[in-house]
């Protein structure tokens, strides 16, 4: 927790994917902080507690100086005398916050998140890994099923007129879009990553209608959802192509 908001970070046990979720303080009704605070929490316990809250309930998260638990108070909005309190004990993860050094990415594309979810799901049916290539003209996501020889490919061509699709965000356009493609393209880049982890990342589509994919050779793939209250980032380790 910092004066800007709350940053959550988690990594899977195989160290293939790191998730960062930033929630700005402006997304809270009130946000008070005396000093920066770093807590390690078992995500299962936190999720179990937060699921006890209904959509309209008010959740208050509290942790004191040198606290050993995060206290979550859940109250019903129109019945403020009804409050349930739950403690989530801290755990020792043996490490502090992880930082991925800021790197200049070679290429970035932004596409509809529902379309991205579909491609991740369909390519995952074919293979455990996929190749992503971004070249000047567009982007290509390819997976090969080595058993059957079947190859799946999704191609996104650079939108000629970026503004063309801006008025129709509710409808998925027939042609794929790549927003601001030209601004972020420096050189042709390709990466091979696990489809399983791309599927995980693509399931966050409800957060934002658009998702960005950022790449630099031999660096983790970055899948990023930007939304008003914050940002969700997935870093996925690159697989070195044979």
């Amino acid at each position: 927790c910092s004066k800007e908001g709350i940053m959550l970070q988690g990594m899977d046990e195989f160290h293939i994917s790191l998730v960062e979720f930033f929630l700005s303080k402006r997304s809270f009704e009130s946000y008070a902080l005396c000093h920066d605070l770093c807590m390690s929490l078992p995500i299962d316990s936190l999720a179990t507690v937060l699921k006890k809250a209904n959509d309209d309930d008010v959740c208050t998260l509290k942790a004191g100086h040198k606290a050993k638990v995060l206290t979550v108070a859940i109250e019903t909005r129109d019945q403020p005398w009804l409050v349930s309190k739950h403690d989530v004990p801290f755990i020792d993860l043996g490490s502090e916050y992880l930082v991925i050094s800021r790197i200049p990415y070679d290429a970035k594309i932004t596409v509809w998140s529902t379309r991205f979810a579909r491609l991740a799901h369909e390519l995952h049916q074919l293979s455990g890994s996929l190749d992503i290539q971004i070249i000047h003209e567009g982007a290509r996501f390819t997976a090969l099923d080595e058993g059957s020889g079947k190859k799946g490919c999704f191609i996104f061509r650079r939108a000629k007129v970026v503004d063309e699709y801006r008025d129709s965000e509710d409808d998925e356009p027939a042609g794929a879009i790549i927003h601001e493609f030209h601004r972020y393209f420096h050189k042709a880049t390709s990466l091979r990553v696990s489809t399983k982890y791309l599927v995980h990342a693509s399931k966050r589509a409800p957060l934002s209608s658009k998702v960005s994919v950022l790449m630099k050779e031999d660096q983790p793939l970055l899948v990023q959802y930007d939304f008003y209250e914050g940002v969700l980032k997935f870093y996925i380790a690159p697989r070195i192509a044979d």
Partner: peptide, 14 residues
């Protein structure tokens, strides 16, 4: 150290 298919080596600990 960077390992094939893993994120180890890409991070610094703050």
């Amino acid at each position: 150290m960077k390992q094939q298919g893993r994120l180890d080596g890409f991070f610094t600990v703050k």
